[in-house]
Design a binder for these strands. Sequence first.
DNA 1: TAGTGGTCTAGACCACATG
DNA 2: ATGTGGTCTAGACCACTAG
Lengths: 237, 237
Amino acid sequence: MNTIQPRYRQIADELRLLIASGKLKPGDALPTEMELCEVKDISRHTAREALRILTEDGLIARRRGAGTVVTTPPAPAFAQPIGDFESILQYARDAVFIPERTRPASAADLKRMGVEGDYIAYTGLRRATGEAPLAITTILVLRQLAPPLEEVNQLQGSISEWIEGAHGASVSNVIQRMEAVALGKGDAARLGVAAGSPALRTLRRYADTAGRTILVSESLHPAGRFAYEMKLTRQRK
Amino acid sequence: MNTIQPRYRQIADELRLLIASGKLKPGDALPTEMELCEVKDISRHTAREALRILTEDGLIARRRGAGTVVTTPPAPAFAQPIGDFESILQYARDAVFIPERTRPASAADLKRMGVEGDYIAYTGLRRATGEAPLAITTILVLRQLAPPLEEVNQLQGSISEWIEGAHGASVSNVIQRMEAVALGKGDAARLGVAAGSPALRTLRRYADTAGRTILVSESLHPAGRFAYEMKLTRQRK
DNA sequence: TAGTGGTCTAGACCACATG
DNA sequence: ATGTGGTCTAGACCACTAG
């Protein structure tokens, strides 16, 4: 193994060792650039390069006029968990889902939504009263649990609630994923916005106590029509 | 307002604009160091410094003997699992915030981020190691609690943790808001994407026990580089 | 005011990739 | 063989911090 390292890296590693070993503690001053130059017999540029590495690694902090010190590492862990299961699903009740099509989920559906198995797909618009549609939503339900379309049409709450009521299945956890995407032509047209315009994509996977993914939903919310908001409260012991 | 920028940063920004505007596409060659030296009438060191910035931002790739090219962005989206109050703040530690500017928050800042009062604004990039920047982040901190920029620079964790440690202030709840937006010209350029392209905007308001909003953070994540993921587990009573 | 880190110049030699 | 980026030297002036 040819272990020839540039000089600046060797020096950076030497200093790093001093910090890691505790010989230099948080707050302690490192040698100044000029001191490094003399002691190591290098040019200032090389000394700076070594110090830059440590700066980028977050090990030291440099201040013009003041000097270079070892940084104080991380931070106190931040408190207690909260289990706020219901409020996550809240928005499903605020805006009504109006299914328009039912079909067996295609391979593309399954891949896009990150599941495998035999699912029925419902697609439709989600809207609040009288307004422009808030989102295009696609829902995949395990075929053996899937309600007929006419029943879905009258659902007031979320499909997941229907499933719980009708089958006694129990949702034990939900994974929710949110990201920004550019709307495709067809989706954009249905939402009445320009193709390529931004949308918030939310993907939710509902798993039952056996670990089966019983339902997946995908919603595309065009920018400006929807924002997802959650409040987290710190729990005190 | 101090608008004097070092020469190397000016040049980095010029090049960044060429990339963001599409004049230089992924795979295209950038000027060589010597060309930059002549065209901009600078020393090689200054040219390298500019190119280094873009390299660290993940916008370009350099190969000895071969040259410098614009990188292909397909940074695969990576998900940030988030489930509780602790881990919601966790990601602040995984992806380092690199503050670049400090200023008193403007009226526009305050309005955009939904607060009123006397705040200090920090803006910078959020990135994981070596990759393209994940986000542009702006943080508003109540002036009376705001740390000096040099201290922010060495923060390992989140600024909110600094505040808790340094002032004994206590965050009692966080309101998080997510939505899709189209990136403005300047932000898009900083992130190396086209103007108007989609981004996930996350806004967090941290309130203390007295109800004061002590900190607000806004992040703009370009599509494809980041997905927010949370797992919620139903609590049994 | 002395010393620090930040910026910048003008050179040099080298390892490496490409034609 | 040429030219690229990687490393390194030896200077310089400046803005800022601290005693």
